[in-house]
Design a protein around this nucleic acid. Sequence first.
DNA 1: AGCGGAACTC
DNA 2: GAGTTCCGCT
Length: 217
Amino acid sequence: MDCNCVSDLLLPPVPALWTPGFAFPDWAYKPESSPGSRQIQLWHFILELLQKEEYQGVIAWQGDYGEFVIKDPDEVARLWGIRKCKPHMNYDKLSRALRYYYNKRILHKTKGKRFTYKFNFSKVVLVNYPLLDMANTPFFLAQNHFSGGTTAPDCTPETIQSLFPRLPESGRGTSLFDRGTTAPGPEGDKLRLDTFPFLSSGELTRGGGGEQTSTSN
DNA sequence: AGCGGAACTC
DNA sequence: GAGTTCCGCT
């Protein structure tokens, strides 16, 4: 009625554009919780932003594998607020939700680095596909993951946008509600098993709290 | 900035 | 279960 975010039907598939050198496991994306849904998980949304180049000024991969930094906390919070139709979202609240993932071991904080978190992809995978046979799975070949991604669906853009002071036109010139930004591209992204360290080594090892101390900040 | 408890919603 | 909102503490 008031905020019906369910127009995730006619969204085109997105090209598997990825940051060079950063092979991200696309299968981490849950097909069910695609672009339109307000039931999207936060970590999922984060992934969605990270996937798109236009948000690299806002949030981007940085540092170790699975590590990302929120460059513009307010903006990320705003985008999250739009997606969830929560006009009063802010980074304070968002970070609380992020903290929720600590216990779930989906995320953890990179200590010493501001606004920097790290994914536990091993956990992410287990959460989504508990019985997934990595070696031979259709997910690797035929994954139709996201589309217009960050596009706010039917939260009535006009309504939402009126609630949010900042305009998307500023800086990067990325319209939040523009669905035509992603051109259809080659889907032949052959994912390689050896790009996922945790499958063999398992990077989930964090003994008892003693972690790496960063050089910055 | 970052943390976690607690009450609350969906 | 997955946040959201509010809070006090470091």
